[in-house]
Amino acid sequence: LDITFHVDGKNIHVHGASEEVVRIIEELIKNNARAEEIKETLERLLR
């Protein structure tokens, strides 16, 4: 699975993920999660 995301100002662009995963990533970023935390969360979800 190949998910890429980047933050452009306040806009979060996520590619290669389901809508549910996109929402989770957006929440994590809004809550100022570190990249490592986001990665760990995604790995748990995608197991």
Rank of each mutant, 00 (worst) to 15 (best):
T41P: 00
A17V: 15
E36Y: 08
K30G: 08
H6Q: 10
I3N: 03
V7Q: 03
E37P: 01
K30I: 08
T41V: 11
G9W: 04
N31M: 12
I24N: 03
T4G: 03
A17F: 05
A17D: 01
N31T: 09
N11F: 14
H15Q: 12
R23P: 01
T41K: 06
L28T: 01
H15C: 04
N11S: 12
S18Q: 05
H6W: 14
R47V: 15
V22K: 08
L45R: 00
T4P: 01
I3E: 02
I25N: 00
I24D: 01
R44L: 13
A35F: 15
T41G: 02
K39H: 14
G16R: 06
T41R: 05
E26P: 00
D2M: 12
I38H: 01
L28F: 04
H13D: 09
A33E: 03
N32S: 11
A35H: 13
K10E: 15
T41D: 02
L42F: 02
I12E: 01
N32I: 03
E27M: 13
G16S: 09
L46T: 04
K10H: 13
L45K: 00
I38N: 01
N11Y: 15
N32T: 04
S18A: 05
V14D: 00
H6N: 14
N11H: 13
I25H: 00
D2N: 12
I25S: 00
R44E: 14
A33H: 07
L42A: 04
E26H: 13
I12L: 08
I24Q: 07
I29V: 08
A35T: 05
E37Q: 11
H13C: 05
E36I: 05
E26Q: 14
E43T: 08
E43K: 10
I38R: 00
E40F: 08
V14M: 05
D2P: 07
S18I: 04
I38K: 00
I38C: 03
E36G: 06
R34L: 09
I38D: 02
A17G: 04
L28E: 00
E43A: 04
K30W: 08
E43M: 08
A17C: 07
R34H: 13
K39P: 00
E20Q: 10
V22P: 00
R44S: 09
T41Q: 09
D2R: 06
K10G: 11
A33N: 04
V21E: 02
R23T: 07
H6R: 09
T41F: 05
D8R: 03
G16T: 06
E36W: 07
V14G: 02
V22S: 03
E40W: 08
V22A: 07
G9A: 02
I12V: 07
G16H: 08
N32L: 05
I12W: 07
N31V: 06
I29K: 02
S18Y: 05
L42C: 04
T41W: 09
G9K: 02
V7K: 03
R44F: 13
L1E: 10
V22G: 03
E37T: 10
R34W: 05
K30S: 10
E36P: 06
K10V: 15
L42G: 00
K30F: 10
E27V: 09
L42R: 00
D2Q: 11
E27C: 08
K10S: 13
K10L: 15
L1W: 13
R34A: 13
H15A: 10
L1N: 12
R47S: 15
V14T: 03
N32D: 11
I38G: 00
E19G: 07
N31G: 10
R34V: 09
K30T: 08
R44N: 10
V14R: 01
D8C: 07
L46W: 05
G16V: 05
L46C: 08
L1P: 08
K39G: 07
H6C: 06
E20G: 06
E37A: 09
N31R: 11
R34N: 13
A17H: 01
K39A: 12
I3P: 04
T4K: 04
F5Q: 01
H13V: 13
S18T: 15
N11V: 14
I25M: 05
H15G: 05
A33S: 07
G16C: 04
R44W: 13
V21W: 09
A35S: 11
K30M: 11
K39V: 15
I24Y: 08
S18H: 05
K30V: 08
I12P: 01
I3Y: 15
A35P: 12
E19V: 13
H6K: 11
K10M: 15
D2T: 11
A33T: 10
E20C: 03
E37F: 12
H6P: 04
V22T: 04
K39R: 14
T4W: 13
N11Q: 15
D8Y: 06
E27K: 11
F5L: 09
L45V: 05
E36A: 11
E40H: 10
I3V: 14
A33W: 07
L46S: 03
T41C: 07
I3C: 05
V21T: 07
G9R: 01
D8Q: 06
R44M: 12
E19H: 12
E26S: 13
A33Y: 09
E19R: 13
A17N: 01
K30Q: 10
G9F: 03
I38L: 06
E37H: 13
A17Q: 02
I24T: 09
G9E: 03
S18K: 04
I3T: 06
E20W: 10
I24W: 04
E43Y: 10
V21M: 08
I3G: 02
V21H: 07
V22H: 05
E40V: 11
E26R: 13
R34F: 06
R44D: 09
V21A: 07
T41L: 08
E27G: 10
G9D: 06
E40R: 10
V14K: 01
L1R: 12
A35K: 05
L1Y: 14
T4Q: 07
L42D: 00
F5C: 03
D2V: 11
T4L: 08
I29E: 00
R47H: 15
H6T: 13
V22D: 00
A33C: 10
A35I: 15
L46E: 04
L45Y: 07
V21Q: 04
L45W: 07
I38P: 00
L28Q: 03
G16M: 06
K10N: 13
E19T: 12
E43F: 09
V14Y: 07
A17M: 05
L45H: 03
E26K: 14
H15N: 08
E26N: 14
L45D: 01
V21S: 03
I38A: 01
R34E: 10
G9I: 02
R47M: 15
I3S: 04
N11A: 14
A17Y: 03
A17T: 04
I29W: 03
I25Y: 02
H15F: 14
I24R: 05
I3R: 07
E37G: 02
N31H: 12
G16P: 02
L46A: 04
F5E: 01
I25P: 00
D8F: 04
A35Y: 15
I25R: 00
L42Q: 00
V21L: 13
I29Y: 03
E43S: 10
K10Y: 14
F5N: 01
A35E: 10
E40C: 06
L45S: 01
I12D: 00
H6G: 06
I29N: 00
D8W: 04
R47P: 15
S18C: 03
R47Y: 15
H15T: 13
R44P: 01
E27Q: 12
H13A: 08
E40M: 10
S18N: 10
V21F: 08
S18F: 05
R47K: 15
V7C: 03
V22R: 09
A35Q: 06
I29F: 04
T4A: 07
I38W: 05
A35L: 15
E27Y: 11
I12A: 01
N31K: 12
T4Y: 12
R23K: 12
L1I: 14
H13E: 11
E20P: 03
K10P: 03
R34Q: 10
I3M: 11
V22E: 02
N31D: 06
L46G: 02
I3Q: 05
E19C: 04
I12G: 01
G9C: 03
R44I: 13
A35V: 14
T4D: 07
G9N: 06
E19W: 14
L1Q: 13
N32W: 05
E19F: 12
D2F: 12
A33D: 02
A33V: 12
E27N: 12
R47D: 15
R23A: 12
L46H: 04
E27T: 11
I12K: 00
H13G: 03
H6A: 08
I24V: 11
G9T: 02
T4F: 11
H13F: 13
K30Y: 09
E43P: 01
T4M: 09
G16Q: 09
T4R: 05
H15L: 12
A35C: 10
D2K: 10
V14W: 09
I38E: 01
H13S: 09
E20H: 09
T41E: 12
E40I: 08
S18G: 07
G9S: 03
V21I: 14
K39F: 15
E36M: 05
H15V: 13
L46I: 10
K30A: 11
R34G: 14
E19D: 12
R44A: 13
D8I: 02
S18M: 03
L46Q: 04
E40T: 10
I12Q: 02
E20D: 11
A33K: 09
G9M: 02
T41S: 06
E19Y: 13
L42T: 01
H15K: 13
E26V: 14
I29C: 03
R34S: 15
K10I: 15
I29G: 00
L28C: 03
I38M: 03
A35N: 05
H13Y: 12
H6S: 11
D2C: 09
E37M: 11
E40P: 01
R47N: 15
V14H: 02
D8V: 02
E36T: 08
L42W: 02
N31I: 06
E20M: 08
N31W: 07
V21D: 05
E37S: 07
V22W: 06
L46D: 03
V22C: 03
V22N: 03
I29S: 01
R23C: 04
L42S: 00
I24G: 02
